[in-house]
Design a protein around this nucleic acid. Structure first.
Lengths: 344, 344
DNA sequence: CTGTTAGCGCCTTCAG
DNA sequence: CTGAAGGCGCTAACAG
């Protein structure tokens, strides 16, 4: 670690060096008008020469804005950690933040105690707003944040509260499409292995599944929906029971790739042919989806676009302030691989 | 968004309410001695009653410390994004940060322009220190950070600079172990498909591979090392060439699970039996490792422990300041699955 | 165009 | 044990 030693110069130092007042230097560093070209040039030169940089704390104190947003991940322990959607979202948020010249604070709530911490840092003015991948309406973080009147943009939960901003993708349409294709491929005994119902996205997927059934004029009794945790071992057990049952499904729509991969494992174990005996679809298009055997047909959410949209919504809101009740729904994409019949 | 309206109280408000001066309230909120029990109780009650919270900017300005650390990911475009080690590290860092009551700022450098931005926010005093998963000695971020005399702890690169702090895992030992086991399993034509050499971890893996060869007394000519980008398509092409060659290897040690999965695909395409004709090992134990066919034998790095150690090193350094030249090397673990022969 | 004057909200001596 | 005062570095509103 090099000992450059010399304390960083302050705005005052630069001002003194230039023979002007701090106010003038401030105008220069902030690109504001009202400074003669010569003075400005001189100041700029001094600045780069002495390596002057604004002190963020001081500016924050004075402007009241931190130029930082937080993303808080509501990771209920291991339930969601494994979901690679978060990292991808994070990437998009990071990109957007950098573009907008905001800093991104990473917060995570894994326990009630941590909720307090998060609320604290938000309330302390550390951040100007927060992006919240929220599970559902009863998400405790969401609730707490709402009390703070901090600008929030949620992802994955379509709040009905007035003034709310959120972005989501077409989980329902994707599930419907997947199911419809199953039906078109001649699969008439359908099973939906879905994630927990308190997750908004899962509810939407369920809705899409049944909509497809209804619209195809299929009797609801020929289809079934079960719920499993987002945990592949539990999913495996459930899958086993379903696939061994007398009314074995010919098409299984899964609420996540992880669940789908568990179903695939089970099918192999039972010597069922996929997609011959059993067509299987996943959800999310996680990296593992292309590495299962057979590779998974799945629905991909536009995570990057989602993160981007969320960030932009938030920044817009922090800017004009007029942005409220902004809802963005982005389209999903069906990725067809080998776990479904040809022509799917 | 509820309009709680009322501006947050400042330390002054609380002081006025309690009939004391701000200084006294400050002592209370900071848990410092020198305040009578009655006064203290009264102030504490006022604080919770009015929902007072310290303003971070003000405190930062006054103390000169932001109580925030940054982790900057040196993602050379798509080369490293796909690596799920980052999210996992991030999780550990986040956990450690929360425990230590630090905030975690997420920074990423994907271009020279962004490097400036990052350096800027670090230089502006936004953070007290940074954790840097560094690729290697010539990492531009590392270089830039070193000039700033900001406390840095690197992960994955063992700096030889004096005063440096880093944590890493036993890439060399893991590679050696994997290779030795290959040899023990009777595989004598060995191939190492490694990642880029400018990545410190890859260099270590290479070293371990050759060490195993030498120690087994095998002629180096019976082994080969090739380098591919961390990109599975490129790896696939290379793998194809190698596996079709006249001297087809009987054991392939790969520098990452992604590379290994490409090798697996290629083997299947060539109708080679794994692990019969070809034993394959990966590196990292990414989620996909258990979903390939066959599932991958691989080496797992203790990512959580690594992140934790890095964070603790940094915090220690920010505290006492005496911590320099602290190097931590954590053990890897071999995960045996089906891509290697029984008894591996 | 530039200087002056106040703070922003908190912490930290130094008195009393 | 508590009060008073000064300052952290910067911005902003108002004068010249």
């Amino acid at each position: 670690m090099a000992t450059t030693g010399a304390a960083r110069p302050t705005i005052k130092d630069i001002a003194a060096l230039a023979g002007v007042t701090p106010g003038t230097v401030s105008r220069v560093v902030n690109g504001r008008p009202g400074v003669g070209p010569l003075v400005r040039a001189q100041i700029e030169q001094l600045i780069s020469q002495h390596g002057y940089r604004i002190n963020s704390s001081a500016r924050q104190l004075s402007t009241g804005r931190s130029h930082t947003v937080a993303v808080v991940f509501p990771l209920h322990a291991s339930e969601l950690v494994m979901h690679p959607v978060y990292p991808e979202l994070l990437g998009a948020l990071g990109d957007a933040a950098e573009l907008a010249d905001y800093d991104l604070l990473l917060l995570s709530v894994t326990s009630p105690a941590r909720l307090d911490r998060v609320i604290d840092t938000v309330a302390r003015g550390r951040v100007d707003g927060v992006v919240l991948p929220a599970a559902g309406p009863r998400d405790p973080v969401l609730k707490a944040l709402l009390q703070l009147d901090t600008p929030v943009v949620t992802i994955g939960h379509r709040s009905t509260k007035s003034g709310s901003c959120w972005v989501d993708s077409t989980h329902d349409i994707a599930a419907e499409e997947l199911t419809t294709r199953m039906i078109a491929a001649g699969r008439d005994r359908l099973l939906l292995v879905n994630g927990p119902q308190h997750v908004s996205a899962c509810r939407l997927r369920s809705r899409g599944f049944w909509r497809a059934i209804d619209q195809a004029g299929i009797d609801r009794s020929r289809a079934r929906e079960i719920t499993v945790p987002f945990d592949s071992d539990a999913a495996r057990a459930e899958a086993l029971r379903e696939l061994k049952g007398r009314h074995r499904p010919s098409g299984v729509v899964c609420g996540s790739d992880l669940i789908a991969s568990a179903v695939l494992d089970t099918a192999r174990q039972l010597s069922l042919d996929v997609p011959g005996d059993l067509a299987v679809t996943g959800f999310d298009d996680e990296p593992l989806a292309r590495h299962t055997t057979p590779a998974l047909t799945t629905a991909r959410m536009p995570l990057h676009a989602i993160g981007n949209a969320a960030a932009e919504l938030l920044f817009a809101r922090l800017g004009d302030g007029d942005v409220a009740n902004a809802h963005v729904i982005l389209p999903t994409e069906i990725i067809v691989r080998a776990s479904t019949p040809v022509g799917f």
